[in-house]
Amino acid sequence: MSETISAVFAHQDTAIRVIEDLRARGHRGIDVMIPVPDHHILDILPKPETKVGWIFSLWGGIFGVTLGFLFPAWAHSFVYQQITGGKPVITWPPFVVPGFEMLVLFTGLATFTGVIVLCRLPQRHGDPHFDERATEDHYVVEVTTEEDRVDEVRALLREAGGEVR
C-alpha cells in the first residue's frame, strides 16, 4: 500500500531543496503544486517530459493538412468539376490556403484536447492535497511512498519547515 503525504512551503528554495533531498533518498512519486511554471522546480521532477506535442499536436496537424488539401480536391473533382481559368481539375496552389488553415486549426484543437486529456482535467471534486495558497505564493510538495517510509518522509518535510498534512 502506498500513501500520499503533502506539505506546504512558503519559499521556492526550500521546496527545491526538499525535492532534491527526496530524490536523493530514492523517492520517485514526487509532484508539486506551484503558482508559476517555475523551471527550477519542474525540471527536477521525476518525469519532466510531456508527450502532448508528439501525440496530439503532430497528429492533429497531419490530419488537418491532409484534410485541407484532399477535401477541396475531392469537392472540385469527384463531386462536380469546377474548372477555373482552364487550369487542371485538381490544382494544388489554391489549396495551400485551406491546407494551411486546417493545419493550424487542427493542431490547435488537438493540443488543447491533449492538455485536457493528459492532465485528466476537469477535476470535478478537486484535489485532496491542493492548498489554495498554491495559486498565490506557496509551494505544495506531494510525495507518494510505501507505507513503511511514511514516517521518514513526514519527518523530512517537517524538518524542512513545511506544513505537513
Binding site: 503544486m33 506551484i34 511554471p37 522546480i41 519542474l42 492532465c119 482535467l121 478537486g126
Partner: peptide
Amino acid sequence: FGWTGRGTHWIH
C-alpha cells in the same frame, strides 16, 4: 477545469 497548478500539469 479545476486547475491546481500541479507540476505534471504545468509540464504539459
